[in-house]
Design a protein around this nucleic acid. Structure first.
Length: 440
RNA sequence: GUGGGUGUAGCUCAGUCGGCAGAGCACCUGGUUGUGGUCCAGGGUGUCGGGGGUUCAAGUCCCCUCACUCACCCCA
């Protein structure tokens, strides 16, 4: 120990970890998320952390910072990495569906809660390893629009069940944006979408400048683009507001029909929780219809806590079938870490134990072990203290670990068992075969 | 990847002009060999991120490097 070289334990940036009393809260969250997903009939899958690089790069550009995998003692000449850690769950899901196409029942509705990795520069709310809770529907040829409304409804229910600070899920439709821009005669709708996406960062005037200088829009066009982006609301009145802007195109009509349908389906949700916002676009270019982006109301600068959308054909690079889908992802780590940082997570117990059984003395250790076994046999989480320390020390251990009851086996033959309620300090005789902790 | 900031005890941090390494919290021991929290008395647990340089002397000044952190890009 003395002159041994020690490795300084430093946190690795972007790789969060929690103390037991916080982790236990996260586990409860995961339980609730899973329960809600399953209540809607979605099934669970898990895919490997690793995918072939060509799978990871099949959709979108290589802009995602993929962590590649190779052995420390790699074969010479075999240094070209062929494997990478997945950076989201959508691409692995697409591969999975293509691979197991014949064995799945469609529409395939699945949820998937796993860690993902992105080699980006960490910041508040941006991690290099984090957990996403994805929920997607995929179906050959076409996915009923009904799912575009069901997914935000499910996520709404999940977020509500977590009891987190106020948030809003914003909804938009790419066809509305693209159709509107086409109606305006703009040559590069995707570039306009990317510019509008910066609205909350650089403001309306910043976007106007971007549209005029970089994309060469005339003032009238730029004004119309910004007018559309300012439309917001939860009812179908949104559709009328857009119609009033006097732009038309076939794609725009389709988009407005879809957006109107989704909003109508969600009209019963609490005011302000799910609203249309024509300024959100999502940078990812594979979204083709409905798009979602959820944020905390109190921290608008914090990244999105849930996001997703509809894609026309996600698995097309893996199978000769058209497989459109719609999906939504909950950024569990991003939400949870923020609440931890804000001190809004009420820590749980430091131990799952309900009872600590005291060891009266070395020669009575067997009694303690037997008492603990009896309690466990009746489903009570119980641990035995590890050595015959002074009683004060044993009780102090229970106190510090947040174990609510301390069990005393007899210290002399013929005496009864006793149990101490740590919160009240009260200690009473108790029967091993019938006693149960409060709230069990 | 680009630019700024910060690295001292387990944690939060102080450390003057270059002159013996510090505080609070946490932790350990005892007061209390059958009872926790409170209280009292003790205890410093450290490669001052790492390497090099200047100097009689470096936590302090200079160079390099690493890590963390903030902003940009991008995103859950």
């Amino acid at each position: 120990m003395s002159d041994q070289q020690i490795v300084r334990p430093v946190p690795i940036s972007g790789f969060p970890e929690w103390l037991p009393e916080v982790r236990t809260v996260e586990l409860h969250w995961l339980d609730r998320i899973r329960a809600t997903f399953e209540r809607y009939g979605f099934c669970s899958i898990e895919t490997p952390s690793v995918e072939a690089l060509e799978v990871l790069q099949a959709k979108g550009e290589t802009s995602q910072e993929v962590y590649t995998l190779h052995r420390l003692q790699g074969e010479p000449g075999d240094d070209a990495a062929r494997l990478g850690l997945h950076f989201d769950l959508t691409v692995p899901f697409a591969r999975y569906v293509a691979q197991h196409f014949n064995d799945l029942v469609f529409p395939f509705k699945r949820y998937q809660t796993q860690r993902v990795w992105r080699g980006e520069r960490p910041q508040e709310g941006r991690f290099r390893e984090f957990t996403q809770c994805d929920i997607d529907v995929i179906n050959p040829d076409q996915v009923p629009l009904h799912f575009d409304a069901e997914l935000p409804r499910i996520v709404h229910e999940v977020l509500t069940s977590l009891g987190i600070p106020p948030w809003t899920i914003n909804i938009n439709n790419r066809k509305v944006l693209q159709g509107f821009y086409e109606g305006l005669g703009l040559p590069d709708p995707l570039a306009v979408i990317r510019a509008v996406d910066k609205l909350d960062k650089i403001g309306a005037e910043g976007v106007r400048r971007l549209l005029a200088d970089d994309l060469k829009l005339d003032p009238g066009q730029a004004g119309a683009v910004l007018d559309l982006a300012s439309v917001r609301g939860s009812g179908t009145g949104v559709v009328d507001d857009i119609a009033k802007l006097g732009v038309s195109s076939p794609l725009l009509s389709t988009g407005l029909d879809e957006l109107g349908f989704v909003l109508e389906e969600l009209a019963d949700l609490p005011e302000g929780t799910v609203v249309a916002d024509l300024s959100i676009a999502r940078g990812l270019d594979y979204y083709t219809g409905t798009v979602y982006e959820g944020k905390f109301t109190d921290w608008p600068g914090y990244g999105s806590i849930t996001a997703g959308g509809r894609y026309a054909d996600l698995a097309g690079s893996f199978i000769r079938r058209e497989l459109p889908g719609v999906g939504l992802s909950i950024g569990l780590t991003r939400i949870f870490a923020k609440l931890v940082a804000e001190g809004l997570i009420e820590p749980g117990a430091k131990s799952p134990s309900r009872v600590l059984v005291v060891v009266p003395s070395d020669d009575r250790r067997a009694d303690a072990v037997a008492a603990a076994a009896a309690l466990r046999g009746r489903g009570v989480n119980t641990e035995t203290y590890h050595q015959a320390d002074k009683l004060g020390k044993q009780i102090r251990y229970a106190s510090r670990k947040g174990i609510p009851y301390v069990w005393f086996p007899p210290f002399e033959d013929g005496r009864p068992h006793e149990v101490k309620d740590m919160a009240s300090g009260e200690q009473t005789e108790a029967d091993l075969m019938t006693w149960t902790p409060a709230g069990a």
